[in-house]
C-alpha cells in the first residue's frame, strides 16, 4: 500500500519535470518562484480578488440580472435602501426590516456568544492546566464538537430540543413543564448562542491552554515562593502572561461570531419569525433563497459586513504583533 502510494506520487510528480526544466532554463535567479506561486495566485485572483471588485459593482447596480453587463447602475441606492430607517433601533421601521433584525440580532449574539465563550474556554483551559487525572481525555472531549459539521451540530441539538426530545422528557421527569424550545423566540435565540458556544468552545480552549502551558513552571514556582495568593497570582501573573492568547481568542471569536450562519440556519431557519435571523442569513436569503434574487442588496450588505471584519482583523494583527514583541 505504502509502496503503491509512493509509486503513484513519483509518477505524478515526474509529469511536470520537463516543462519545469524548460521554465528553469528560461528564468534566471529566483524568478522561477513566479512559476511556483502562479497556480495559487491565479486561483486567488479568480475567486478572491476579482470577486471583491465585482462585489462593488453588484452593490452599485440594481435589477435581478446575474451578468454584470445587464445590470443598471443605481449608485448608492442599495446602501441607502439598506440603511433607510425612521428609527434605527426599531427594525420594523426600516425599509429592509429583515436586515436590521439581522443586525441587532447579530450584535446581541456576538456580545453574548463571545463573552460567554471566552469565559468558559478560559475556565476550562485553567482547569485543564491544573493537576488533572485523564487530562488528554477531557481535552479531547471538549474539543471533539469543533470537528463536526455545523449541519451535524444543528441536527444533534434539534433532535434533543424538539417538542418530544430528550430535554423535555428530562424536564417532565423532574416535574417541570415542557417547553417548545425552538418555537419560542427568546429560547431559540438562547439555544443559538448555546449551540454555537458548544460547537466552537474547544478550539478556543485549546489556544488558551497552549498559552497557559507556555508559561514556564519556574515562573509559577517563583510566585509561589513569593507567597502570592491564588487570586492575586491569577490577576497579576497568569492573566498578564496569557493576554496575547486572550486577544487572539477574542478577535477570532468576534470575526467568527459576526459571520454566524450555518448551525443556526439549520437549527432554527432564522425563526421563529426573525428571532434568530443574522446578517449572513439575510445576505444568503436576499441573494440566493428568495424568489427574486436581489444580488445588489446582498452585495451591499456583504460590503458593510466586510468593513466590520476589516476593522476586527486589523485589531487582531496589531494584537498579534504586540504579542510577538512581548514573547
Amino acid at each position: 500500500m505504502v509502496k503503491l502510494v509512493a509509486a503513484l506520487y513519483a509518477a505524478l510528480m515526474n509529469l511536470p519535470e520537463r516543462p519545469m526544466k524548460w521554465a528553469q532554463s528560461q528564468l534566471s535567479g529566483g524568478r522561477l518562484g513566479w512559476v511556483f506561486v502562479g497556480p495559487n495566485l491565479a486561483i486567488f485572483a479568480i475567486f478572491t480578488f476579482l470577486p471583491i471588485a465585482f462585489d462593488l459593482h453588484y452593490a452599485l447596480t440594481g435589477g435581478t440580472q446575474l451578468l454584470p453587463g445587464d445590470r443598471p447602475y443605481v449608485g448608492a441606492e442599495n446602501f441607502a435602501s439598506l440603511l433607510d430607517c425612521t428609527d434605527h433601533f426599531d427594525p420594523n421601521s426600516c425599509r429592509r426590516d429583515l436586515f436590521w433584525h439581522g443586525i441587532w440580532n447579530t450584535l446581541a449574539f456576538v456580545g453574548l456568544q463571545v463573552g460567554l465563550m471566552l469565559f468558559f474556554s478560559l475556565l476550562t483551559a485553567i482547569v485543564l492546566n491544573g493537576r488533572i487525572i485523564g487530562r488528554s481525555f477531557f481535552r479531547a472531549a471538549f474539543f471533539y464538537p469543533v470537528l463536526l459539521s455545523p449541519v451535524v451540530v444543528a441536527l444533534i441539538w434539534k433532535w434533543i430540543l424538539q417538542r418530544e426530545g430528550l430535554l423535555n422528557a428530562a424536564m417532565e421527569g423532574v416535574g417541570a413543564t415542557p417547553v417548545n424550545w425552538l418555537l419560542d423566540g427568546n429560547w431559540a435565540f438562547f439555544w443559538s448562542v448555546f449551540v454555537s458556544i458548544w460547537a466552537h468552545m474547544g478550539f478556543y480552549t485549546l489556544i488558551l491552554l497552549a498559552g497557559l502551558q507556555s508559561i514556564p513552571a519556574e515562573i509559577n514556582e517563583a510566585s509561589q515562593m513569593d507567597a502570592t495568593r491564588p487570586f492575586r497570582h491569577f490577576t497579576r501573573i497568569t492573566l498578564p502572561l496569557l493576554m496575547p492568547n486572550v486577544l487572539v481568542v477574542l478577535v477570532l471569536g468576534l470575526i467568527r461570531a459576526v459571520q454566524i450562519f450555518d448551525e443556526v440556519y439549520v437549527l432554527t431557519g432564522g425563526g421563529p419569525g426573525s428571532a434568530t435571523t443574522f446578517v449572513v442569513q439575510y445576505i444568503y436569503k436576499t441573494g440566493f433563497a428568495d424568489q427574486v434574487r436581489q444580488y445588489g442588496l446582498a452585495a451591499a450588505a456583504s460590503l458593510l459586513l466586510a468593513s466590520v471584519l476589516l476593522v476586527l482583523t486589523l485589531i487582531q494583527m496589531k494584537g498579534q504583533g504586540g504579542g510577538k514583541q512581548r514573547g
Partner: peptide
C-alpha cells in the same frame, strides 16, 4: 505576493458569495 495572500485572510467567503456565484 506574500502580503497579498495574507490579506485574503481578511476576506471570508461569506463576503464574496454573490460575485463568486457569478464566476
Amino acid at each position: 505576493v506574500f502580503l497579498l495572500m495574507l490579506a485574503t485572510l481578511m476576506i471570508p467567503p461569506t463576503i464574496v458569495l454573490v460575485p463568486n456565484y457569478l464566476i
